[in-house]
């Protein structure tokens, strides 16, 4: 019951909010893309999360994977200037994040192992989540990104090789692709990052409409949570959409332990139509490292 009520609400809001409708046309004559395609796909993706894992890949495991499996695809989603500055991992594809949706023809089939990398892992998590929603089940994100890779002085080449584009996998629903591509193309300046210090400062003036903690219940209990947070485990976002704000322009800040699950949740919320979602950089670990306060239930 809750789900169908929310879907109706989302549809109503999508139709009523001119800015939103302009940014992402969620309906066609035949199909309500958000209700009929996006929400079911997010439910499917979210339900599989516990078994499939989040897709985070530590640098050591990434290096082993590169040595063992020549078929692994490394997808660098940084901006052109960043790649020019540092170089790129040999044989990596380079597709800046905002253009990822319109360049899927450069990627191999849906079952390929694709490791998405950016500078720190923040943007790559958004890219990985978008790919997973599109059906690339083996998409992963390199934890620590190129920052960690370069710190170990692993090798890079000057520029990515040019790759001939193939067909977009036929199994991807064109309406789903169009929607996700538009979402990526419209990612905000700054990518939705909010630092612990900035968020703490903001919270003196205005609390976010929703400060969403997506860690597990155990993590909520220890090391604790940020005052004013609502807890929904990332694996259970879709069964709990009724807890989310009705206003798609609501100020939402997501956090997890280190930022990766927060990035997944942020992308899911953006795909649901929320237009003002940010993710706490470094998660609550970064918050605690900045010596900001946490609460613990007795």
């Amino acid at each position: 019951m809750r789900k169908s009520t929310l879907l109706s609400l989302l549809l109503v809001f999508a139709l009523l909010l001119p800015g939103f409708v302009l940014a992402q046309d969620t309906t066609t004559e035949e199909v309500d893309v958000l209700a009929d395609i996006i929400m079911p796909r997010l439910e499917e993706y979210n339900a599989a999360m516990e078994e499939a894992g989040y897709g985070t890949l530590k640098l050591d495991d990434f290096m082993v994977m590169l040595a063992e499996d020549p078929e692994v695809v490394v997808l660098d989603v940084r901006e052109v200037a960043e790649v020019e500055e540092t170089g790129i991992i040999e044989n990596a594809l380079h597709i800046p994040l905002r253009t990822l949706g319109e360049n899927l023809g450069l990627l191999p089939d849906l079952d390929a192992t694709i490791v998405v990398v950016c500078k720190s892992g923040f943007r790559a998590t958004l890219g990985m989540t978008a790919l997973k929603v599109l059906g690339y089940d083996n998409a992963k994100v390199l934890v620590g990104g190129m920052g960690a890779y370069l710190a170990e002085e692993y090798p890079v080449v000057e520029m990515a090789e040019e790759v001939e584009a193939g067909e977009v996998p036929a199994d991807i629903d064109p309406l789903l692709l169009e929607y996700v591509a538009a979402n990526l193309a419209n990612l905000p300046e700054g990518w939705g990052v909010v630092t612990p210090a900035n968020l703490f400062e903001e919270m003196f003036e205005t609390m976010p409409d929703l400060l969403l903690d997506v860690r597990s219940a155990e993590e909520w209990a220890d090391p604790g949570y940020i005052e004013g947070a609502t807890h929904i485990w990332v694996n259970e976002i879709m069964p709990n959409v009724a807890e989310l704000p009705e206003d798609l322009e609501a100020n939402i800040v997501v956090y997890c332990a280190s930022g990766y699950r927060g990035g997944i949740a942020m992308t899911m919320l953006q795909l649901m139509g929320y237009t003002n979602v940010r993710n706490l950089a470094g998660g609550i670990n970064g918050w605690i490292a900045a010596e900001l306060p946490v609460l613990k239930d007795a």
Partner: peptide, 19 residues
């Protein structure tokens, strides 16, 4: 080979993606 010992780099062949 993996460079698991602190402050000691992984083998150059590992870094060149050789299993």
């Amino acid at each position: 080979y993996y460079g698991a010992h602190e402050d000691i780099s992984s083998d150059v062949h590992f870094r060149a993606r050789m299993a």
